[in-house]
Simulated scan of single mutants.
Amino acid sequence: MIRSTLTRLRIPRPIRRYSKLATMSLKAISAKDAASLDKDLMETGGWSLDQLMELAGLSVAEAVWRVHPPNSGKNVLVVCGPGNNGGDGLVAARHLAHFGYVPSVYYPKEGKNELYQRLKTQLQNLSIPFVTDFPSALKSTDYLIDAIFGFSFGGPLRDPFGDIVSQIEFASVPVLSVDAPSSWDVQSGPPKEGPGAKFMPGALISLTAPKPCVAHYRGRHFVGGRFLTKNIAEKYGLDMPKYQGVDQVLEIGVDAEGKL
């Protein structure tokens, strides 16, 4: 009797409710101001480059966990450039190994900073391989992290990165880009032609704050790098991301406001 009554009533399934945080947007910061902000964090905020890179890399690894959990495929290829963006990728690879993934690293042009060499040693101590055959690694991975160039990239792409970006651009593997899709101008977005002109990663994590190029991006967008203070945010006119609990990332919209 009860079952028949419920059937007649046709009680609807609960409506899935989405948090407003998932659709919020944050103000964008220019490359010049992003560099100045990092300098402020280190000179007046008491942060070291190691600390900033550690939190940035951790947020990248958590974003991967959100969009591509281990049961979707554990093999993750991290493609690193020679600068701080590449360093973030090296840190992310270490965290991914601890998260249960099987990361590998393609590092065609290593950074000269002693910090990068220490990060590389940490990965070697975890038996994380540094691959040299990029086309083969690209075919065998389940997911790829683009940690080649970040907000300081000014273009054009120099060897060997033009060919690398082209291979990523037309590969079938899903991609998460760190801070900006590599080859994109931080202000104006993707190049009009050549490598990267059609590059649109499935996920993007903006570190500290979105960059203006996010206006050209279409995909899942996260903000990470949980080291902003109220004073620094006010100085640069930024919104404080409303991270939840112990989360290191926050998914946000892609319609960030332009340069402040």
Rank of each mutant, 00 (worst) to 15 (best):
R3A: 08
Q122H: 14
S182T: 15
E54Q: 15
G73C: 03
L228N: 07
P14G: 08
D239G: 07
C80D: 02
I11Y: 01
P212M: 06
G81T: 10
S152A: 14
D142N: 15
L90Y: 04
R118V: 01
A180L: 13
D179C: 02
V249R: 14
F134I: 04
K235Q: 11
W47H: 11
L58A: 09
P14A: 14
T23D: 05
K32V: 04
G189V: 07
M42I: 12
G83L: 14
E54G: 10
M24R: 03
V105M: 07
D40M: 03
S19Q: 13
S59Y: 11
T7F: 14
A22M: 07
D88H: 07
F227N: 10
K112M: 08
E251W: 03
S136I: 11
R218H: 08
L52D: 03
A171G: 13
S140N: 15
L26C: 01
V223Q: 05
Q124H: 02
V173N: 11
A215I: 06
D185H: 15
D255Q: 11
V64Q: 05
V254D: 00
L9S: 02
L250Q: 15
I15M: 11
Y107A: 12
I232F: 05
I29F: 05
F199I: 10
P129G: 00
A34I: 15
S188A: 12
D142H: 14
P135H: 07
R13S: 12
G155K: 06
A197S: 15
G150D: 00
E43C: 03
L138M: 12
R158P: 01
I164G: 04
F170A: 05
V249Y: 07
P195E: 11
P212N: 06
D40W: 07
A92D: 09
V165K: 10
S127V: 09
L207H: 01
G73H: 09
G224R: 04
K120M: 09
V78R: 03
S166Y: 13
V254S: 14
